[in-house]
């Protein structure tokens, strides 16, 4: 019963993340949604580990621990990229508006 509960949660979280990645246009929200998808995969792996009849399996746990650290480093890199993307956009806007002023009638 508990297994089915967590399995349903993992499946729904994954689909929810995918839906948000598809329909959200804000990049931060997309990043969060991708993180939710990753968490759903982790949840499934740990569920498999916890439901092992022989006892808790340490290998998936170690894999997920590695995964969490990789996810945070990727999130950090993506957020840095995002900030620089915004800065580049701003710069483009400014030069664009200056050009417009120069070309317009005085």
């Amino acid at each position: 019963m508990t297994v089915m509960l967590y399995a349903t949660t993992a499946a729904t979280l994954f689909a929810l993340g995918l839906y948000a990645v598809l329909v959200r246009t804000g990049l931060i929200h997309r990043l969060l949604a991708a993180n939710v998808m990753a968490t759903a995969v982790f949840l499934f792996l740990i569920l498999v580990s916890a439901e092992n009849p022989e006892g808790v399996d340490a290998i998936p746990q170690a894999m997920v621990l590695t995964g969490i650290v990789i996810a945070v480093s990727l999130t950090a890199f993506a957020l840095a990229l995002l900030r620089y993307l915004q800065a580049a956009d701003d710069e483009e806007d400014q030069t664009g508006s200056q050009d417009g002023r120069q070309n317009g009638p005085d």
Partner: peptide, 28 residues
């Protein structure tokens, strides 16, 4: 599509039987 995906994934997960693979048995 997401709802279909969730249903499919959940169905796959229910039908999965968990047992020790060779790596897990060795690690244990």
């Amino acid at each position: 599509l997401s709802i279909l995906l969730a249903a499919g994934l959940a169905w796959l997960m229910y039908s999965l039987t968990v047992a020790d693979g060779p790596a897990a048995a060795m690690a244990r």
